[in-house]
Amino acid sequence: MSADASHPDTDTTRPHPARVYDWLLGGSSNHPVDRKVGEALPGETRGNAARNRAFMHRATAWLARNGIAQFLDIGTGIPTEPNLHQIVQAVRPDDEDPYAVVRSLVGALPAGSFLVLSHGTTDQHPEWGRSIESAYEKGAIPLRLRTRSEVEPFFEGLELVAPGLVSATEWYREGPAPTPERSGFHVGVARIP
């Protein structure tokens, strides 16, 4: 196992989804093995990662401007400038049953809290077929893309904030509106009743 000096437990001989995502965003916290997976993905994947990141910035900023002061970020991402960890606490749950994990976490939150969720998809990129998942599989990285109907259950029992469950470039609450583009992510913000 090779380790980088700043993170002695980092295995740089195997790709990691957070480092692949970092590469997609143009970051520098990745290694040749991560770049190999990223380079095997369709070219538009980089744009989709950027659009997902922009959604997260819009949703988080809107919530903060509307009085939400505590954030919980659940994912495997490496903080990429600007660092989300500066405003949220990172947690890595076991995702064996992602619906149950989300229900459990949401169930522990007080009424009036919000769930901000983005999930990868090829719905707007049918030409990609399984190429995204296959590229990750070759790097031994588990990845499960979901259709819109498979993402909807994450919001079951919650109050979706307008515009609801949409693509990453369609979600905004305050102007200016993002440029409409095809997206590789379904996103939504929901209030816990």
Rank of each mutant, 00 (worst) to 15 (best):
G139R: 07
V33K: 09
D4R: 15
L158P: 01
V102W: 01
H125N: 06
A190T: 15
A59L: 12
Y172N: 01
P17H: 10
H186S: 01
S113H: 11
V189K: 05
A50I: 10
G75A: 11
N30S: 12
L109D: 08
T10R: 15
T12K: 11
T80I: 13
S29I: 15
P93I: 12
W128N: 00
P153C: 08
P176C: 05
H186A: 01
H7E: 13
H16W: 12
S183R: 04
P32E: 15
S149N: 13
S118N: 12
S167M: 11
G43C: 03
F154W: 04
I87D: 00
L72C: 02
S118M: 06
P180G: 00
E44H: 10
Y99P: 02
L165A: 03
P126V: 07
P98G: 05
P110L: 10
R65S: 05
P176W: 04
E127Y: 04
D123V: 08
S2T: 15
V106Y: 02
A3Y: 15
E152R: 11
P193E: 10
P8F: 11
T179M: 08
A140N: 14
K36F: 03
A111F: 03
V187K: 04
M56T: 09
V20G: 02
L24H: 03
E170R: 14
T122F: 00
R173N: 06
P17F: 08
W62I: 04
G26K: 08
S183M: 07
W128R: 03
L115E: 08
E152V: 14
P8I: 15
G77S: 14
G38N: 12
S131L: 05
R19P: 10
R148T: 08
A54F: 08
